[in-house]
Design a protein around this nucleic acid. Structure first.
Lengths: 153, 153
DNA sequence: TATTGTTATACTCTATAACTATA
DNA sequence: TATAGTTATAGAGTATAACAATA
């Protein structure tokens, strides 16, 4: 009985320990390894634009959990590196649309490969049942905390 | 069969999506909520020192996955805020020892409470079996990626 | 007037390189 | 010479406040 009350707190404590740890592991890998040209936020921005070609800046900001100025600056850097294109919307000229360049897509895909290989190498020691539990647990966490879906055009 | 090959990659992809998302959720909460005085790295540093009173700076750096200069600067800020004490080691005067002040412990505990409550509120909708799977999965991840244990004094 | 985005400013996080002090 | 830590410097990530342009 009491355990049911405690469970969310125990899980919360585990999240608080594990998530920042994994984040620093990911950051350290992405800096040192084969994809040092992208930081994690830059990587996420490219991922979002790749899935939402023509998406607006406010969509990127909400997906990344950033304020508009922070998102604007992040996008600035990616445009300067020729990984993203930014152009004014046609119907509403206040909004901007974003899309990947060929170089952006290539670098993004290389970074995904590198990070997935790095993680998968560490996970390969685990039993299939454990991996499946883990994948499911993370999916549940993501669905709980992910910002609301972005409207298409 | 093939699924067994794919599993680590699937899990890796899920980590890559979910961990940065959770990190930005945690950061946003810690800024806005009842514990805006601590950033996540500061929070982690206090947690480490709380569990390793008298620990050395290089231990903090390795726990946090930081270079020594980065850790030194982080500790600087916490010492300036009177949350940590820093003093030279007795046997080896090159090393420094760290400990929590009363204020440091108090602010750390308040931040833990706030973050755990925030997370637990979102998790309380989940079934006990799902929570237990999640806690276990995170624990496994942590054990895989955590830096080696720190020697005691 | 409300919305979309940018500019100005400031602070934290993080790194590398060069340094000091101690062993 | 090797180790523990700091200082100097630089760049990215993030925020708030103030602004410009469009609707």
């Amino acid at each position: 009985m009491k355990v049911h009350v405690a469970q969310p707190k125990l899980c919360a404590a585990e999240i608080l320990e594990t998530v920042p740890l994994l984040m620093s592991v990911l950051r350290a890998h992405s800096r040192s390894a084969s994809s040092p040209e992208l930081s994690i936020p830059q990587f996420r921005a490219l991922a979002f634009v790749g899935r939402n070609q023509g998406g607006m800046l406010c969509d990127v900001a909400s997906f990344l959990g950033l304020t508009p100025p922070s998102a604007s600056k992040l996008i600035d850097g990616l445009v300067a590196k020729r990984l993203l294109l930014r152009y004014a919307g046609t119907t509403d000229r206040r909004s901007i649309s974003l899309s990947l360049t060929a170089a952006g897509r290539k670098i993004y895909e290389r970074a995904v490969q590198s990070a997935e290989k790095f993680l998968a190498d560490h996970l390969s020691q685990l039993a299939p049942s454990v991996l499946e539990e883990m994948r499911h647990s993370l999916e549940v966490l993501r669905s709980i905390f992910q910002p609301l879906e972005v409207r298409k055009s």
